[in-house]
Amino acid sequence: MILIDLLQGMLLLAGVGFFLVGTLGILRFPDVYTRVHALTKADNLGLGLIVFGLLLGAESVPVALKLLLIWGLALVASATAGYLVARAARRRGVKPWKARSGGGA
C-alpha cells in the first residue's frame, strides 16, 4: 500500500512540475508559436501524470473513467486551441521568431 502511495505522490508531483515548466515556458519562449508549443505539450503531460496519479487512488470504475475522460477532453481542447491560436497568428502575419544564425549556442 505504501508503495502505491509513494508512486501516487511522485506522479502528482511530477505532473505539477510539468505544469510549472509549461508556465515558465510562456515567460521564457520568444514568440507566440513557441509559447503554444510549451503550453500544449507540457500541460498535456502534466495533466496526464496527475490523472494517472489519481487513477491509482480511484475508488470506483466510473470515477476512473471520469478522470480519463477529463484528460481526453483536455487533450482535444488544448490541441485544438493551440492550432487555432497558431493559425490566427499566422493569418495576422506574425513572423516566427528566428534564432540568430551562428550566434551564442
Binding site: 512540475g17 509549461g22 515558465l24 519562449f29 503531460l45 502534466g46 496526464g48
Partner: peptide, 23 residues
C-alpha cells in the same frame, strides 16, 4: 506525449534556451 513534454521541459529549463524554430 511523454517525449514531447520532456523535450519542451528540457528546452525551457536550459539556460541557453536551445530553440531553432522553422516552418
Amino acid at each position: 506525449s511523454l517525449l514531447a513534454g520532456w523535450d519542451v521541459a528540457r528546452r525551457t529549463l536550459s539556460p541557453a534556451l536551445p530553440l531553432r524554430p522553422e516552418i
